[in-house]
């Protein structure tokens, strides 16, 4: 991306922009992935809880496990930005 005609400020700004874009992709895509994973687990969890209330605590835990995917994305984004 470095052009012969670019100044140092321009190069730094472009690098910052790319980092921000990378961070946005890291959080955005992992967010979508978590959503898809939680959709299936969540519907099964609601079904199981409707029949047997005792499993609520357990299925809640199972439902949030895919949440780790988006947390990894967030960590990567933060590392990129700071």
């Amino acid at each position: 991306m470095v052009d012969v005609g670019m100044t140092l400020e321009m190069v730094e700004a472009s690098q910052l922009g790319m980092r921000a874009l990378g961070a946005a992709l890291a959080v955005g895509l992992t967010g979508i992935a978590s959503g898809i994973a939680e959709m299936t687990i969540g519907s099964a969890a609601v079904g199981a809880t409707a029949e047997n209330r005792d499993v609520f605590g357990l299925v809640l835990l199972l439902t949030v496990i895919p949440e780790t995917i988006v947390i990894f994305g967030l960590v990567v984004a933060l590392l990129l930005l700071f």
Partner: peptide, 12 residues
């Protein structure tokens, strides 16, 4: 998701 919901209820 509807299928998953109903089938899980049946399994329980």
């Amino acid at each position: 998701t509807n299928y998953i919901y109903a089938c899980t209820r049946m399994r329980v």
